[in-house]
Amino acid sequence: MRLESFLLPLAVSAAVVERQLGGAKVAGITKLTPEVNPKATRQVTRFGPLTVKGKSAGGDSGQQNWIWTIRDGLCRNCTVLKGHVGLANVDGTPVSPNNDVYIHHILTFDTTKKQKSFLSGCASGAAGLGGAKFIGSGEDNNNVAVWYTARDGKSNNGFHIGSSDSFMMNIDLVSYHANTKQIYLTMDMEYLPGLQGADARETLLSVTGCGVPSIKISQTGPTNTTSGKYTFTEDGTILGAKGHLHAGGEKMVMYINGKFACESKAMYGGAKGENAIDEMSLCTTSGIKVKKGDVMTMTAEYDVSKHPVRHESHGMGAGMADIMGMFDLIFAAHS
Rank of each mutant, 00 (worst) to 15 (best):
P9V: 00
L10R: 14
A11V: 15
V12T: 12
A15L: 11
R19L: 10
A24Q: 05
K31T: 06
K31Y: 06
E35P: 00
V36S: 03
N37T: 02
P38Y: 02
T41M: 02
R46C: 08
R46G: 09
G48S: 04
G48P: 13
L50H: 09
L50D: 09
T51I: 11
V52W: 08
V52Q: 09
S56M: 06
A57K: 10
N65V: 08
D72R: 15
C75H: 09
C75M: 07
R76F: 05
C78Y: 04
C78E: 00
V80I: 11
L81Q: 11
G83Q: 08
L87C: 04
P97R: 11
N98A: 10
N98R: 11
V101F: 02
T111P: 15
T112I: 04
T112V: 01
K113N: 13
K116H: 14
S117F: 01
A123Y: 07
S124C: 04
A126I: 02
G130Q: 08
G131N: 07
K133N: 09
I135D: 13
I135Q: 15
G136V: 02
D140C: 08
N143A: 05
A145C: 04
Y148I: 01
T149K: 12
R151W: 05
G158P: 05
M168L: 08
I171E: 07
I171F: 14
S175W: 09
I183N: 02
I183E: 10
I183T: 11
L185A: 05
D188I: 08
D188W: 10
Y191S: 12
Q196I: 05
G197T: 08
A200G: 11
R201F: 00
L204Y: 13
S206R: 12
V207H: 12
V207L: 11
V212L: 12
V212N: 07
V212Y: 06
S214R: 07
I215N: 07
G221P: 01
T225Q: 12
T225V: 00
T226E: 03
S227W: 05
Y230A: 07
Y230K: 13
F232Y: 09
D235G: 06
G236P: 09
A241W: 06
L245I: 00
A247P: 00
A247F: 08
G249M: 05
E250L: 08
M252D: 00
N257L: 04
N257K: 09
F260D: 06
A261G: 08
E263M: 13
K265V: 03
E279N: 14
T284A: 01
S286N: 14
K292L: 03
G293P: 00
D294S: 03
M296N: 02
T297V: 02
T299S: 02
A300T: 03
Y302C: 04
Y302A: 01
H307G: 07
P308R: 09
H311L: 10
H311V: 02
G319R: 03
G319P: 02
D322F: 13
I323V: 13
M324S: 06
F327L: 13
L329R: 05
F331Q: 13
A333K: 09
S335N: 12
S335L: 08
